[in-house]
Write a protein that binds this DNA or RNA. Structure first.
Lengths: 101, 101
DNA sequence: CGTGTAAGGAATTCTGACACG
DNA sequence: CGTGTAAGGAATTCTGACACG
């Protein structure tokens, strides 16, 4: 199971088609730290399917009038929560298997 | 579960990096019917992760000296076998659920 | 048959800036 | 703050062809 979803291989032109956003917006959201495309040696941006999903969520939030700063805060928060959840789960699994030893 | 693997969004330059093949070879294998990238309105080729896997298999076969015609025959055959298998499975499932009715 | 290469054109992508608000 | 646009350069991609074998 290779993580195709996270592989950064899509150029910005294709992203505009997939998301309906302009290049300008996409680059601006990067500037604000909402997404982090990879750069080729030459400097062209490469996005993953995951980035595209994020961009579509951003587009929805922006339509609701949410500012990029707010969107970023929410996204960072979600990641934090996910990490806490994963840490807890890991801890429980470890405790479980340690007890069984 | 979106089929990222089949979505044709990768341009040929990225494919050369991912597969190690030259553009010439990639286009030639298309000419021989081994792969079928999508074309944008403007005419640039777009490949899927699935296409990339196919290309890597082709590269291996070519190194073994297998001709493209032979490779195509094998690939077509594999697809045929997969279809037969799927048809059989579908038939069994249908029979199963019909009997239960 | 399979692949390299030079050729010329057309579209892509990038950055920094000015604009409006 | 968020986005549009014109500007100029650099790299990408395409096709058809000649080459070698």
């Amino acid at each position: 199971m290779i993580p195709y979803k996270e592989k950064k291989v899509i150029s910005i032109g294709t992203v505009t088609e997939l998301t309906g956003l302009t290049e300008r917006k996409i680059r601006y959201y990067e500037e604000r730290g909402l997404i982090s495309p990879k750069r080729t040696e030459r400097g062209t941006r490469k996005y993953s399917f995951s980035d595209i999903e994020t961009l579509m969520n951003i587009a929805d939030k922006r339509e609701e009038g949410v500012q990029t700063k707010e969107i970023k805060k929410d996204m960072d928060n979600e990641k934090k929560m996910a990490n806490i959840r994963d840490d807890l789960l890991r801890g429980q699994l470890n405790a479980h298997f340690n007890l069984r030893r």
